[in-house]
Nucleic acid binder design. Structure first.
Length: 567
RNA sequence: GCGCCGGUAGCUCAGUCGGACAGAGCAUCGGAUUUCUAAUCCGAGGGGCGGGGGUUCGAAUCCCUCCCGGCGUGCCA
């Protein structure tokens, strides 16, 4: 159990259950955080002030009582605590013992890639749906941001013990695909020389549509031109969307993303699920007919208005399939469902929640995470985008321009609520401006130290296990100095960061942490020489920087960013 | 009009369920290399958190209100 939690438990025991209505609440009240300033120790908690309000006691007195309890639990904490201070108006500041940090370094070395893992997810089944782009055109940077976030969230959540499954819901039928079919059909006819054929104004105008039309004309000749136009449009819509889907999946792969499941709306509908749901909702009395359309009563479940499920022309609204799809997630027994979507779909969230609630599902199990817009900055200017017109910056272009590592990192660096300015020039700079290289460089430097140590025969290659120094003895760490301990202390926070990032769905916490850790290391590097005259100190520091390497490479691995040995 | 997100240093943004003097990177200015990669490090100046009111021992964080920006408010998806 992490030291934070151990101490938190002691506080809970001291203050008793009376302090909060439930165990979960009590844990929150008694939460112990890493201190932001070394002057406040390693760990700190404002629990006494929180309690003072409820119990009308003096915070200082409560703090003293808790502080004493922590001191008294010294043995139980394995001597991890060196000193407990109480500061005005009632902060409890905990200083961890040197021995604790030395043990931590050895733990990191011993656990390697497993260090930082936990079981807070309790193997709960989680489904993560993200970047479900319509197969009507190339992926945009907005999809790229969602994809990077979804992928990394999946990695982090697995790491902290969730049973995660990722999914791409493909809207491969319906009105958009008809539009695509019409657009391709027009381009196809033009490629055959029919000058009068034109893409409808609300169709897809991108170059890729012309390319598909042209290819079909070359390969299939007049085959589609000889069909009844509506049949040709249907057929071409299907063909084009399949082709575009393949390109999308290959772009995702190039971006380091592979879905566990690609879920086709067309197949889903063809299997009858959607029709069945419609009938069921009608039987349940959740719908009514008006103006020739079938409406779902979402307003009484909190939506702004009722919504159309079946349009006046008898066609299913997209919404119907989406409701069926979301319900299907419950049928597949996911305990938690996370859905990443763009800000242009946030109006849809209420409707889905209302529908799930009407169907009797636990809405709180579904979390919709709105990922705000991503603006591309080129030459200091925002680039305007629009999918329909084909004027857009595609994910593919960005990857080609700055590389997948940099693209991923930039997408992850801000919290999802914030708009993201993606400056292409900045991303391309291989300099201190670019946080990705800054972090990767920290890793490369450590790798370099270990190489140099081998070259100078200070390190026996046999003592290197997967790039980590495991030689000498654990007691060597006794030689470490204060500056070394400060670096080690940073490693201790890794688990807490991951937990927070995974549970709160905030991957930017990991990128922030990594930047801090890299900064700490670079600073350390200029202050301390690892391979020095003192044999024992050298062995100790080889251990320490190896531990840093373990955490940096774990974190980069979770982010899906390459881990360079040399730069 | 209503709904969602945002408004923190010149710029881009963090800020641990409200907590200890408001932070980082970039930009600006000044320094550091006979020592494991200077894609690095150190230092300085710079904001009081969109405006106003409120709750609190304590507010950038909560409440109210106003202003500004983005998005939504389809029988499109």
């Amino acid at each position: 159990m992490p030291i934070r939690r151990q101490i938190s438990d002691i506080i809970c025991e001291t203050i008793g259950e009376s302090a909060a209505p439930g165990r979960a609440q009590l844990d929150e009240v008694a939460a112990v955080d890493y201190a932001r300033d070394p002057a406040y120790g390693d760990l700190t908690t404002p629990v006494a002030m929180r309690l003072a309000k409820q119990t009308r006691q003096k915070p200082r007195e409560i703090a003293e009582r808790i502080a004493q309890a922590i001191r008294d639990a010294g043995e139980r904490l394995g001597g991890a605590v060196r000193r407990v201070d109480v500061a005005d108006p009632g902060f409890i500041n905990i200083f961890l013992a040197r021995g604790y940090w030395l043990r931590l370094i050895n733990q990191v070395i011993a656990n390697g890639p497993r260090y930082g893992r936990s079981d807070v997810g309790k193997r709960r089944k989680v489904q993560l749906e993200f970047a479900s782009a319509n197969p009507t055109g190339p992926l945009s940077v907005a999809h790229g941001r969602q994809a990077a976030l979804g992928d990394v969230l999946a990695n982090i959540m697995k790491f902290i013990g969730f049973d995660v499954s990722t999914e791409y819901w493909v809207n491969d039928c319906g009105g958009q695909i008809d539009k695509l079919g019409e657009s391709v059909y027009a381009r196809y006819l033009r490629a055959l020389g029919e000058k009068s054929a034109a893409v409808p104004p609300d169709g897809y105008h991108g170059d890729y549509v012309a390319e598909i039309g042209h290819d079909l004309a070359v390969k299939e000749g007049r085959r589609y031109a000889n069909m009844p136009p509506q049949d040709a449009v249907d057929e071409l819509g299907r063909l084009a969307s399949e082709r575009i889907l393949q390109e999308i999946l290959s772009d995702f792969e190039q971006f380091g993303i592979q879905y566990d499941n690609v879920f086709s709306q067309r197949k889903f509908e063809a299997e009858g699920h959607v029709g069945q749901l419609l009938q069921r909702m009608q039987r349940m009395g959740l719908t009514y007919e008006q103006d020739g359309a079938v409406w779902l009563k979402t307003k009484e479940q909190g939506d702004a208005k009722d919504r159309v499920l079946v349009k006046g022309d008898g066609a299913w609204a997209y919404r119907l399939s989406d409701v069926a799809y979301h319900e299907d997630k419950f049928m597949r027994r996911f305990e938690r469902v996370v859905n990443l979507l763009g800000p242009d779909h946030h109006g849809h969230i209420r409707t889905m929640q209302a529908a799930m609630s009407a169907l009797g599902h636990d809405v709180s199990a579904v979390r919709f995470l709105v990922v705000q817009h991503c603006t591309i900055i080129r030459g200091g200017r925002k680039v305007k985008m629009s999918t329909r017109s084909g004027k857009m910056v595609t994910l593919d272009e960005v990857i080609k321009e700055v590389g997948a590592d940099v693209a991923r990192f930039f997408f992850l660096i801000r919290k999802t609520d914030s708009h993201l300015d993606f400056d292409l020039e900045l991303a391309k700079k291989q300099s201190l401006d670019n946080p990705v290289y800054y972090i990767q460089y920290a890793h490369a430097r450590i790798a370099s130290i270990l190489r140099k140590a081998q070259e100078s025969a200070r390190l026996d290659p046999a003592d290197l296990t997967r790039g980590v120094y495991t030689g000498g003895s654990k007691d060597d760490l006794e030689a470490l100095e204060d500056r070394d301990i400060a670096l080690a202390a940073k490693l201790g926070r890794f688990g807490a960061v991951l937990e927070k990032a995974g549970l709160e769905l905030e991957p930017h916490r990991l990128t922030n942490y990594l930047q801090e850790l890299a900064a700490e290391f670079h600073n350390y590097y200029t202050q301390c020489t690892v391979v020095g005259p003192d044999e024992r100190l050298t062995r100790a520091r080889l251990r320490l920087v190896s531990a840093v390497r373990v955490v940096v490479s774990s974190a980069l691995h979770l982010l899906g960013v390459h881990i360079p040995e040399v730069m």
